[in-house]
Design a protein around this nucleic acid. Structure first.
Lengths: 146, 146
DNA sequence: ATAATCCCTATCGATATAGTATGAATAATA
DNA sequence: TATTATTCATACTATATCGATAGGGATTAT
């Protein structure tokens, strides 16, 4: 039931790019330092995000990455699925009822289906925009309390 | 976000034992055939369930396995956690806020926390008893419709 | 005694995870 | 144009996990 480090990194990268999307490109080195992600591993994450159409890159000196879409259109679910694959708790949810041999074998399917719905009801509705709002609200609250 | 085969097997075994818990012990061979699980792999699953206190065994000729507790006391969550480990989608949910370096890093924690709650709200409430009821209802419905 | 069963440990091939290493291609800039 | 900062591509490594397979010992009903 776990999300991989790679996916965790990817989400943090995208959130950072969303928060700073008016400030031009951001280099992998800067992201690596800010988010404390090993540079070379981060580069692979960035390559993966680029191939998935989530970010664009500018090469060469002064190059870096920018977010592609509107933050409100990018959901956590889309990112998780692209990096980690399907979120269904069990494979047979995708493959119809033909793989089930008997009632006992099938019996859990409705439960896993509920779990799947519960997960997707959250991650497919939360967008990067929502995340940036949370971050900004939290930092504002901090400013007032100190 | 996936449940392992081993866990899937374990749940099916426990359900089978719950359905037939008045019929004495059931051998691994019988379970293997009925549930179509490789015998030697099944033996490991059974050993794991026994060590977890979910089942008891009788050795020797005419030996086999029986469910230990009352089916209504055994939840899917307990089984999943014993076989697959924690269900939290990300580790930092267990380790307090001290591991978070900044707001951006922490930002996703509330979402993962919601996902975690959504999952546990289901799997910690569904018991083997519930599952047996579903199976019996389903087979009854089948009898009437044919 | 025999046969059926549980029990224990080791091994295996494939795949995934989380990196590390090396260096080529590209582009801004001095 | 040379330098430098950057992306991009590929290969490698080390470790763990997954889903099994294998062999044989211990136990017990008959």
């Amino acid at each position: 039931m776990q999300v991989s480090y790679k996916c965790d990194y990817a989400l943090k990268v995208l959130l950072e790019l969303a928060l700073r999307r008016t400030s031009g490109v951001i280099s992998s080195q800067e992201l690596s330092k800010k988010l404390d992600i090993p540079l070379k591993f981060l580069e692979q994450v960035l390559a993966d995000l680029r191939k998935g159409g989530f970010i664009e890159s500018r090469r060469g000196n002064m190059g870096g990455y920018t977010l592609v879409g509107a933050p409100e259109k990018i959901t956590l679910g889309a990112v998780v699925r692209h990096i980690d694959g399907p979120v269904e708790p069990i494979d047979c949810l995708n493959s119809g009822y033909k793989n089930c041999r008997d009632l006992a074998t099938c019996a859990f399917k409705p439960v896993w289906s509920r779990v799947n719905k519960a997960i997707t009801d959250i991650i497919d509705k939360v967008s990067l925009e929502d995340m940036t709002r949370d971050v900004l609200n939290a930092s504002e609250a901090l400013n007032y309390s100190i």
